[in-house]
């Protein structure tokens, strides 16, 4: 079943989660590039769409908040479900809030990291691994580029948008946006010269 979701060609895609998992994005991308070069010269490829894999960092935190440990280092972790007085911007809603609370994903010890159920810590730039724990199927879709947004080159270096780029992890439903104006109706386009 696994092969259905994984790329059938090239070793790189199979290794990708490992690179993504180490939390050091720059290093991982460097390794990726090196691997690509090895692949480029080491294997005969008829298609080039597997060469590069690149992740866009999630929404940039403002310096008011990040790094989180600045404030949280002196605060004791409170696992109680409650209204957040400080983080009024965070509303945890419509995301299984009865079952989970902040510290299920945020590492109580190191507030600059996220915590997987395995106990592994990941950075915010690999937040998709948190999502993966429940949304495995969607995550696979995302990995293969059929869910989520990618930009760049269709046959080469492309950038994946992390889950959190589109879905606020605390209220993950897609936020409604203002649409661009509708087209001009043909009746209103009329530019009669003879009027």
């Amino acid at each position: 079943m696994e092969s259905f979701f994984l790329f059938k060609r090239g070793i790189l895609p199979r290794l990708l989660p490992h690179f993504l998992g180490n939390g050091n994005l720059r290093l991982s991308s460097l390794v990726v590039v090196l691997f690509c070069l090895i692949q480029l010269f080491g294997t005969i490829r008829s298609y080039s769409s597997e060469t590069e894999f690149f992740v866009v960092p999630p929404v940039a935190f403002s310096s008011d908040y990040f790094p989180c440990s600045e404030c949280h280092k002196d605060l004791e972790a409170n696992p109680e479900k409650r209204n957040l007085h400080q983080h009024t911007e965070i509303v945890y809603k419509d995301h299984a809030e009865d079952e989970r609370w902040c510290l299920d994903c945020h590492d109580p010890a190191d507030r600059d990291k996220l915590l997987l159920t395995t106990g592994e810590k990941v950075g915010f730039d690999a937040s998709h691994k948190i999502c993966w724990q429940c949304h495995g199927s969607l995550h696979n879709d995302w990995q293969h580029g059929i869910h989520g947004k990618r930009i760049g080159n269709w046959d080469g270096r492309k950038q994946y948008y992390l889950c959190a780029a589109c879905h606020n992890p605390h209220t993950p439903a897609f936020r409604p946006i203002t649409p661009e104006p509708p087209p001009v109706a043909p009746e209103k386009t009329l530019k009669r010269r003879d009027k």
Partner: peptide
């Protein structure tokens, strides 16, 4: 913004 659009090479089995 929704990532609803997918594009690629139909002859490439690994394309999106």
């Amino acid at each position: 913004p929704a990532g609803a659009r997918k594009f690629g090479n139909l002859l490439d089995p690994a394309s999106e």
